[in-house]
Amino acid sequence: MRLRSALAATTAGIAIAAGLAACGDAGSDDEGRDVDAKSDCDGKFAEGSRMAELADAGTINVGHKTDQPGVGFQGATDDVPKGFDIEIAKLLIADLCIDPASDKVNWEETISDNREPYLESGKVDVVLASYSITDDRQKVVGQAGPYMVTGQQLLVKSDSKIAGVDDVKGKEVCSVTGSTSLETIKAKGAKGVGADSYSECAEKVLDGTYEAMTTDGTILAGLAAQNEGELKVVGDQFSTENIGVGYGKDHPEMCEWIDGVLEDAFADGSWAEAFKLTLGPSGVQTPEPPTLQPCK
């Protein structure tokens, strides 16, 4: 496995944070990059491996978010989701010799609270849904990567005097139920309030129900760009979030395969191209690829 230095991961987080205050569009209006399916799956994967099973079946179920502009988003008129999570998913799908643009891919909406249950039950084969890698999650599911390093920040009204996490102590701050962000903001002294989606939190900030919402800075940048002039991202990052790919814990062989696809994408520029296409319009600078964590 080709590992990069810890400095690369740190630089990635800094670069993401640096661009969050910039204005721009919430993401591309198209369906992203065209990724051609590979044609080398005959004997490519070990017999009996989950990758071989998926390649032989020619179908895959992918869990994703729908309310995170630039990361994982699907509007009412969109046939398929789009965003950085989706672009990474396409690389994995294509490596299984499945056409990412075909109806052989079932894009299954997930929310923060059902990602583990969907993997455990087999409803989805992989989850790419702003899915932070944590020790607790790895007790019940497998996680590989990360393919992005970001950090938690705050989203507030444009005229808010809140400048950072110290200013929300004792205040109600919205985040999504089941997310690491909700637990982190509580630990920082705020009154974390759970919601079903990030878009719901943003609406509650806009209508004054809550003074702030919190999650990964990349997600907040997309929401701020979607509501340009009304919302802004504030403060330094107060957590480090390693965003990875979830898979069933009973298929540990998937970790090395996922990491191999990511390493290739880091090396050939397709990772950077996907990042620039999806998160660049929100003002996020393209960082160096992150360091992959060892498979457990």
Rank of each mutant, 00 (worst) to 15 (best):
L154G: 10
T134Q: 12
C174E: 08
D250Q: 11
Q293W: 06
K104Q: 15
A57I: 02
F73G: 04
P117R: 09
R137G: 14
Y147V: 06
T184F: 13
P290L: 02
G13F: 00
D135V: 14
T66E: 13
T286N: 05
L182R: 01
C23H: 11
Y147C: 04
T286M: 09
V193D: 00
N242W: 01
D250M: 04
L7F: 11
K188S: 14
F73E: 12
T291D: 09
I88L: 03
L223C: 05
S49V: 05
S160I: 01
T66W: 06
P294F: 04
A94D: 11
D196W: 04
E172D: 14
E87M: 12
Y118F: 15
E87L: 13
L182E: 03
D113P: 00
L277S: 09
S199V: 05
K104R: 15
E31I: 12
V245H: 03
Y147F: 13
S112Y: 11
A26Q: 13
V35P: 05
T110D: 07
T110Q: 14
G48I: 14
A129R: 04
I14P: 00
S112T: 08
L223I: 15
S5P: 01
V193Q: 02
P252Y: 06
C295L: 07
G244A: 07
V284C: 04
A221C: 08
A12W: 01
Y210W: 12
T278S: 15
A202K: 09
L119S: 07
L262V: 06
G229T: 06
D196Q: 06
G32H: 10
V141C: 07
P146L: 02
Q153P: 01
A8Q: 04
S130P: 00
K186Q: 14
G164Y: 08
G24L: 03
G244V: 10
V140F: 12
D56W: 00
E256F: 01
P252R: 07
G235Q: 06
A37P: 02
L262M: 08
T286Y: 04
P287N: 00
L20V: 06
S132Q: 14
G235A: 08
L7V: 11
E183N: 11
L7S: 11
L292V: 02
D216G: 15
S28R: 14
L206P: 01
P287D: 01
P289A: 02
V173K: 04
I98E: 05
S181N: 12
L279E: 13
K186N: 15
L54Y: 09
D135I: 12
L20T: 07
E288R: 08
K123G: 15
Q226Y: 01
V173S: 08
T59Y: 08
V62Q: 05
D268G: 12
A9V: 01
T218G: 13
F73K: 05
F238A: 07
R2I: 14
S197W: 09
V126H: 09
V176C: 11
M1E: 02
M148T: 03
E31N: 15
I93K: 03
V233F: 03
S5D: 09
E120F: 07
S181C: 11
V245M: 03
D166R: 05
G194I: 05
Q138S: 11
T215Y: 09
L119M: 07
G283S: 08
V126C: 10
S130T: 12
V127C: 06
K139F: 08
L20F: 00
N61A: 15
A18E: 06
K90V: 11
D250G: 04
T278H: 11
G32N: 12
L91E: 03
A187H: 03
G43P: 05
K82F: 04
D34I: 14
C255I: 02
A57V: 01
